[in-house]
């Protein structure tokens, strides 16, 4: 084979060049979202891991139960009662949509349409 050395060096340079982003970011996770957590509360409706993974299901359950099943209260696993409401419960503790919900959703590129109707705390017109 002709120019074996040059070809191998070329291939190595090629591989390194195309994996530069990987090498530059090695060991750093930059895209991790940092939602602003409530300061005067310590616990969410359910535990944090559950909320992180299943809050959309919880919201779906709440809205079905409240609107279609005539129920008002949700009991969490500790027996604490919450009124099932996006604006009156979630957003009373999580007082900002932009600094909480959106920070995660921008990272995972999801756009729930809830805020077309539901009023985010920051857009309340006086």
């Amino acid at each position: 084979m002709y120019n074996t050395g040059k070809v191998i060096v070329g291939i190595i340079v090629f591989i390194i060049f195309f994996t530069i982003p990987f090498w530059l970011n090695l060991g750093k996770v930059k895209a991790l979202p940092k939602p602003e957590l409530p300061k005067d509360e310590t616990k969410c409706v359910e535990d944090t891991d559950y909320m992180r993974a299943y809050h959309m299901q919880l919201l779906h359950e709440w809205r079905t139960r409240k609107i279609r099943k005539m129920q008002v209260y949700y009991m969490n696993h500790e027996g604490k009662l919450y009124i099932m409401s996006l604006q009156r419960t979630c957003m009373k503790c999580h007082t900002s949509k932009e600094k909480f919900c959106d920070r995660c959703h921008q990272v995972v590129v999801t756009h729930p349409d809830c805020w077309r109707c539901h009023i985010a705390p920051e857009e309340v017109k006086k």
Binding site: M70, Q71, V72, I83, Q87, R116, C117, I119, V124
Partner: peptide, 26 residues
């Protein structure tokens, strides 16, 4: 003005009185 305790609606949906179901339930 907006009441932050209740949602608004959006373009393209039909709406009407709901007999204040949320108040009756409470």
């Amino acid at each position: 003005s907006m009441n932050p305790e209740f949602p608004t609606r959006t373009l393209g949906v039909v709406e009407k009185c709901i007999f204040c179901y949320h108040r009756l339930d409470e």
